[in-house]
Design a protein around this nucleic acid. Structure first.
Lengths: 150, 150
DNA sequence: AGTGAAATTTTAGCAAA
DNA sequence: TTTGCTAAAATTTCACT
């Protein structure tokens, strides 16, 4: 992982559809060399996958809410319970008073209410606190330390 | 946006490197038809971009923290102030007592402390409350309502 | 809107430095 | 590890349905 790898990652996070020729040019490498480096980054798991980013509002996820989940028991192995709810797009175990923090995308506040009810039904959950997002300033990929060329 | 479009989106969220032939087959379409639908989904902005997903830990983002930011004044146009901090990967205006919720990725808790200091220096910010994530159960794309073939 | 096929571009594997 | 070459594969366009 040198600075060229980081530059490649930065470019691929912006647009993974460009050709290796273009990509290589952007970081000062031939197409073949760029290809080989990207292949290795995939192999190492640095690049997990390349995926289409979908506008949440276009697929019924216009309302974004963060929910802290309190519990009476250890929630460390409740991952599947949260994963079973398709509206839950993230779930994390957190330090602090609450046990789990989840990110929820719903089409409406009505649907949010339904998700909260289903979260409450999970074993050990003693309460939820929902924080509705009014406006998203930005959501962006983790910075690999910004490209130095191109 | 019919059920075929949603199936295409679901497949492309999982893997955008597959050929249009494979993709079309998965949803019961020819390669040309799949290509045309995907082109339109891009044009409409339903597909925002196709990007490489990078392992945060591999690029110095191993520590994930959510920070609620309290303020004395209206924060509605402070987007750039947060965007200027590369460790901040999300920023949202929220309903409730705090004004802004941000998601931060840092290499260490030391670096987190530095980010908190820089957030505190933003005009109008009166306080921060950091919640460190101990374990991430999952992070996944918004569900377009799951493929009906495939 | 979708199909099938042609023309063009890109990818992926390999020899060489 | 990078380069340049080459065969194989994918993309993109187009005439037709």
């Amino acid at each position: 992982m040198d600075h060229i790898d980081r530059a490649l990652l930065a470019h691929l996070q912006q647009d993974a559809t460009q050709s290796y020729a273009t990509l290589g040019q952007a970081v000062g490498l031939s197409a073949g060399a760029a290809h080989e480096r990207v292949r290795k980054l995939r192999e190492q798991g640095v690049i997990r996958r390349t995926a289409a980013e979908v506008d949440p509002a276009a697929v019924g996820g216009g309302v974004l809410t963060y929910v802290t989940v309190d519990s009476t028991s250890w929630m460390g192995d409740s991952a599947e319970s949260f994963a079973a709810l398709p509206e839950v797009v993230e779930a994390h175990v957190i330090a602090g008073s609450a046990a789990v923090l989840v990110k929820v995308r719903t089409a409406s506040t009505g649907q949010l209410q339904d998700v909260l009810r289903r979260i409450y039904a999970i074993d050990g959950v003693s309460g939820t606190r929902a924080t509705v997002v009014l406006e998203t300033f930005f959501e962006r990929p983790v910075s690999p330390g910004i490209a130095d060329q191109g």
